[in-house]
Design a protein around this nucleic acid. Sequence first.
DNA 1: CGGGTTTGACCAGCGC
DNA 2: GCGCTGGTCAAACCCG
Length: 158
Amino acid sequence: MESSNVFGNVHGHSIPNGFLGLKSTEIHVPTGQEVENSSRSSGGFGRSENEEKSCKKKYEKKIRKPRYAFQTRSQVDILDDGYRWRKYGQKAVKNNKFPRSYYRCTHQGCNVKKQVQRLSKDESIVVTTYEGVHTHPIEKPTDNFEHILNQMQIYAPL
DNA sequence: CGGGTTTGACCAGCGC
DNA sequence: GCGCTGGTCAAACCCG
């Protein structure tokens, strides 16, 4: 399966790589973080919570989470792609006057994350970065998905 | 009442 | 060694 394309096959919709000419930039994580379901006890509040996994994984496979950035032109940063997203944080970037929003997929076993950042240079441009792959079908009608493509304009340089 | 959103605080990694 | 940034989570609040 092509895990490189998140929207490769959505609800039976086969979308060619490029997303209607959308520029998909593949970003690899230099730090090689193995987040996901790994024991990130120290990552969060580990003072009151005792992790059950005391044994550390010495041979932790370096699973790099596929990250894909999509540049879209939209007035709102809330691009509903058909999945349910829950905002779990908001931080301001130095290069950007606008804060970055962190979204997470509210699904069991689906640890897909999404980040939305707006360019300070052009607030009309919204960069949506998808991290991970959905392992479940969309809970929204397919028509909506097409509607998304219709409502959002792809920022493609002529 | 439930789900989702908000803000603040905390931690780890990296740079200098 | 210290400081900074980025990233994440937790509790509280708000809305439907």
